[in-house]
């Protein structure tokens, strides 16, 4: 059999070389040319990193929901006022110690587990963990079965109950699929910090620290080494990327 010329499917090379506006970010996987000032982040997911959050409940102000508002604005999930069905990527939880009566507040969002139950149970593999530890939903193959919502111990995921419009370009979301905190992955890839952390810092409370858990020199690692902290549901041994202190 003779071979005729096949119309070449575009290779990654073609796509990379096409387009004047295209900036070459990588020479080879893992080798980054660009550096981002003021942050430990770099472009593209890096298997050498593990992004995490440290939330200091002692600094989380009562009644403040700057992180929640910032997340809703950044990712465009503001609901229609139906609290039971509106998406909730991040929420403020008020805790009262049953024994002592002491109250505290803290934000809860996707905990970006190292062994995420949502990824284990997802039948199609739509729930996945990026190599830098961020747990995401591939909405292109999510069939909307909601088994991940059954499996998540933190109620971190929401189901989109209605057709939506006016999504953010960087945060696509659509009816019939499941979604949750992305750790502002689009910002991280651009060398910025998550919107909630930025907003928390802007209030002056500074209750949230973002950084690379694998880098012993990062602020988050230094604080974790210095002060006591915990993960939610430690009995499940999921090794979350989100840690809490001073609950």
């Amino acid at each position: 059999m003779t071979c005729t010329q096949k119309p070449a499917a575009p290779t990654r090379r073609d796509i990379l070389k096409s387009g004047a506006a295209m900036a070459t970010l990588q020479l080879a996987p893992g080798v980054t040319l660009m550096a981002f000032g003021g942050s430990e982040a770099q472009a593209a997911a890096d298997a050498g990193k593990r992004w995490g959050l440290l939330i200091d409940a002692g600094k989380c102000a009562e009644g403040c929901s700057a992180c929640v508002t910032a997340c809703a604005d950044e990712n465009g999930w503001k609901g229609k006022g139906d609290a039971e069905r509106d998406a909730q990527w991040i929420r403020k939880v008020t805790l009262k110690n049953k024994a002592t009566g002491r109250t505290s507040e803290l934000p809860v969002m996707c905990q970006h587990c190292e062994s995420p139950p949502c990824v284990d149970v997802c039948p199609t593999g739509a729930s996945f963990k990026r190599k830098d530890g961020i747990v995401l939903v591939d909405k292109h193959i999510c069939i909307g079965c909601r088994y991940c919502m059954m499996a998540c111990p933190f109620k971190a995921r929401s189901f989109v109950h209605e057709p939506v419009t006016n999504q953010k370009t960087h945060a696509p979301r659509g009816v019939g699929t499941v979604e949750g905190c992305t750790l502002c992955v689009h910002r991280i890839d651009a060398g910025r910090i998550p919107a909630c952390v930025e907003a928390c810092a802007a209030t002056g409370n500074g209750a949230m620290v973002f950084g690379d858990l694998r880098d012993p020199e990062s602020e988050i690692s230094r604080r974790l080494a210095e002060y006591p902290s915990l993960t939610l549901r430690p009995d499940l041994d999921l090794n979350q990327g989100v840690r809490y202190a001073e609950i």
């Binding site: 609290a83 109620k155 549901r233």
Partner: peptide
Amino acid sequence: PMELFPGYEASSPFFD
């Protein structure tokens, strides 16, 4: 409700 915080009474706008 799921018990995210054993030993605490939890409440939130998301029905914790």
